[in-house]
């Protein structure tokens, strides 16, 4: 009877925890996406794919890691600026969204000098889509499955130790 109750509670918990949140979850990681257009660098920053990263600081570093520009995102999480002069390397835009949340986006030297090709745009959009991807139910269930698998391994080890004692 006791075992049955434990099993029932376990199943109930797992169902609630895996299925219900899956309907409204979204990725928490902060993301910055940037591209070059007409001598300007445009950027968009947000948490997952839903919420804009407002008033967050952006630092732009060159290939040597030196600061070449800095600014802040607006209410839409956007920030744009003219490509800094005398740049001889690619740039990395670092977004600081506070409380330990950071993200970066690399722009190659080639992208800064030439207009991006269709392939460049396609690759960038694919990277952006991948970053914005929300956690799937499959990943959630797999994660919970791994936790229980590890628990079973621990149970097995403890059981063997008990027997050998």
């Amino acid at each position: 009877m006791k075992t049955l109750r434990i099993k029932q509670i376990s199943v109930l918990f797992i169902i609630i925890l895996t299925l219900i949140p899956a309907g409204f979850v979204h990725a928490h990681k902060v993301i910055i996406f940037a591209w070059v257009e007409d001598g300007m660098i445009f950027s968009e920053s947000h948490f997952g794919s839903k919420r804009e990263a407002k008033n967050c600081s952006i630092r732009v570093l060159n290939g040597k890691g030196l600061l070449v520009h800095k600014g802040k995102t607006d209410e839409q999480g956007k920030y744009s600026f003219k490509i800094p002069e005398n740049i001889d390397s690619g740039l990395v835009l670092h977004l600081d969204a506070g409380t330990g949340h950071k993200a970066h986006w690399k722009i190659s030297e080639n992208e800064l000098r030439n207009n991006p090709s269709n392939d460049d745009i396609k690759t960038a959009m694919e990277t952006k889509a991948k970053l914005e991807e929300n956690p799937s139910l499959y990943k959630i269930v797999t994660g919970v499955g791994i936790i229980f698998l590890l628990a079973m391994v621990l149970k097995f080890i403890k059981k063997r130790r008990k027997k050998s004692d």
């Binding site: 509670i9 376990s10 979850v25």
Partner: peptide
Amino acid sequence: IDYDKIVHVAILASAFFVASLIHINIGPAS
């Protein structure tokens, strides 16, 4: 970890694993 409590640990670890996906938007932060 007590042998008989390993399942409890797994259930609560699962809750912790999934809880991070439930969001609250506060001001500029998430």
